[in-house]
Amino acid sequence: MKHFAKYWSIFQITLLNSLAYPGEMVGRSLMIIPFMWIFYQLWKVTFSTAGADVISGLTLRDTLWYLMLAETIELSRPPLARTMSENVKDGSIAYILNKPYDFMLYQFSAAMGETIFRALVNAIFGGLTVWWLVGAPNHPEGFIIALPAIFGAWFLQFCLNAMIGLSAFVVEDVSAFTWIYQKLAFIFGGMLIPLNFYPQWLQTFAKMLPFSSAMYGPVYLSVAPSRELFISVMTLQLAWITALTILLIIIYRRGLTQLTVNGG
């Protein structure tokens, strides 16, 4: 029990630390309001040009709620890869590594501590904006049903970002990898355009990638909840979580042997 209590404490202290400047955090979260307004203008024109109320199974209202949740997940995610890279560059990795805990679980607990409050604030601002623009979600229960998948999405994003962060053990600066990852996540994760709107062949391809399980799957589940979709989203996500966790552990163990700590 004590073994797991430490990770809960790490989560708590990171959460407290992220609240040190609440005004700054809330101010940053206000960014979701113009984002939602721009998305509304874009998709309103798209739906009216197409002359349809439903495109690929989604209404304008579904699309906006989809994008709100996608933005909430993305904007709440801490810059883990960059932080790990900074830790290696400034030598503070020495302190993080020499405590009696699992380094990757420490990173995950800390990342979740940073994520939760930001997600809540983003969801409130984003949700109120979308509600005002298009009305209440068609399936409010979907957000509850999708919760496990949303946490799974954060875990998958953690795995992918931690792998990039760990490359700092060898190359120190990871900004190029982070840039590539972001673009891939935007396109194949369905962050700006739901994957439903892609041509069939691209949809099939994108849905097989981990980016889809880390964003599109859970978010789509929240706007179109069903038992079948829940099972398929969770199954694919669990498969990716298993594969990426194993890969992450392997990369971490190899990375440790090659670590160079700056400043001595």
Partner: peptide
């Protein structure tokens, strides 16, 4: 040259965290 205390929080919070760790 490297701090281990959480910079924005009182040192007591880090002490309690270390107790757990």
């Amino acid at each position: 040259q490297r701090p281990q205390l959480w910079y924005h929080l009182p040192a007591m919070d880090t002490f309690i965290l270390f107790g757990k760790i």
